[in-house]
């Protein structure tokens, strides 16, 4: 059903070329749809960028102007929210950034290792109860977190993990993020079997096939996992709020909420300023990580 909407201007049939037009050169003919594509993309980009730009401009406005100005024009550049916000909480904001980095790095490593292993098993190995196991894996992500959080809290409290980052990181090391297992399964299944077969004929075991054949070919999936784990963990508020109670250990999303409270006077300027600051690492990771998205089978050589 999706195919119709996917039709993009076909360079070989130029709809804009009317009979009476001067014949276009080949390059011109190719360029016109390109320009259309650019115009379209730029339009979309403006809509996409607006919220971020608004957040940046809001962080430069006095607090009492933030909620009256939906526009992007700033008449008074006020940078003070940045140093104020940085130092407003009981610790400098950098320490919350650092806490988040610890949690995020643990989660990324955990997801990369454990999910790719599980994905290899589901995609390439034959074993009993595979379908059941796969279904069980998917079922575990169908329950809303709000009914699981209390038993989870009890469990982690019994393990003595409350107020540490363990409840946030250990589950990732144990492939509980079925999203990424499934994602990688789909990617591994897209890698031609002949490549494994060739390696097996050379005497490679599963460990070697996994490490030397499959992993290099699923770099785009690994990059996707890294980027998403980073961003989602970086923004995850609820579990970080529940499991970490010591303010010195607060992560960025929890720390950001300290600027505001619905029932008292809040500092939205500082909130937006620190939100902008906390976006920088995420954006850098995305910029850097997306290079690896391009390293598909096509560029790594394939067969």
């Amino acid at each position: 059903m999706t195919t119709e909407t996917l039709a993009t201007p076909d360079p070989t049939i130029d709809p804009a070329a009317e009979p009476g037009d001067r014949p276009l050169t080949v390059t011109q003919r190719r360029r016109r749809p390109r320009i259309l594509a650019h115009v379209g993309l730029i339009l979309v980009a403006v809509v996409m960028l607006y919220p971020l730009l608004w957040m940046v401009t809001s962080s430069l406005r006095p607090n009492d102007q933030i909620f009256t100005h939906p526009g992007l024009f700033v008449d008074t550049f006020d940078l003070s929210h940045y140093p104020d916000g940085w130092n407003a909480l009981s610790k400098p904001f950098g320490s919350y950034l650092l806490n988040s980095v610890v949690v995020v790095l643990g989660s990324v490593v955990g997801n990369l290792v454990s999910c790719s292993m599980a994905a290899y098993a589901f995609a390439r190995l034959k074993f009993r109860a595979k379908t059941v196991a796969f279904a069980a894996m998917l079922l575990t992500i169908m329950l809303p977190v709000h009914v699981l959080i209390i038993p989870q809290y009890v469990l982690f409290a019994q393990l003595g993990w409350i107020n540490t980052y363990l409840p946030l990181i250990v589950p990732k090391l144990l492939a509980t993020d079925a999203f990424f297992v499934f994602l990688m399964v789909q990617f591994v299944r897209g890698i031609p079997r002949e490549l494994d077969e060739a390696a097996r004929i050379d005497g490679a075991g599963h460990a070697r096939i996994f490490l030397q054949v499959i992993l290099p070919l699923m770099v785009p999936a690994l990059a996707t996992t890294t980027i998403f784990t980073f961003i989602w963990t970086w923004n995850d508020f609820f579990s970080q709020l529940i499991f970490v109670t010591d303010p010195d250990l607060y992560t960025v999303p929890v720390a950001l909420r300290q600027f505001i409270d619905a029932q008292s006077q809040s500092d939205f300027g500082a909130l937006f300023a620190m939100s902008v600051v906390s976006l920088v690492p995420v954006f850098l990771v995305f910029l850097f990580g997306q290079r690896f998205l391009l390293r598909g089978i096509a560029t790594t050589g394939g067969k």
């Binding site: 809290y153 009890v154 409290a157 709020l241 109670t245 303010p247 909420r257 300290q258 505001i260």
Partner: peptide, 25 residues
């Protein structure tokens, strides 16, 4: 004294969870 604090809505979620687990401050 070990303090912990949050905004209004997060507060009640956390309090309910800790109270349910007999781990209320």
């Amino acid at each position: 004294v070990e303090p912990t604090y949050s905004d209004w809505s997060g507060y009640w979620d956390r309090l309910a969870t800790t109270a349910a687990a007999a781990d209320m401050p």
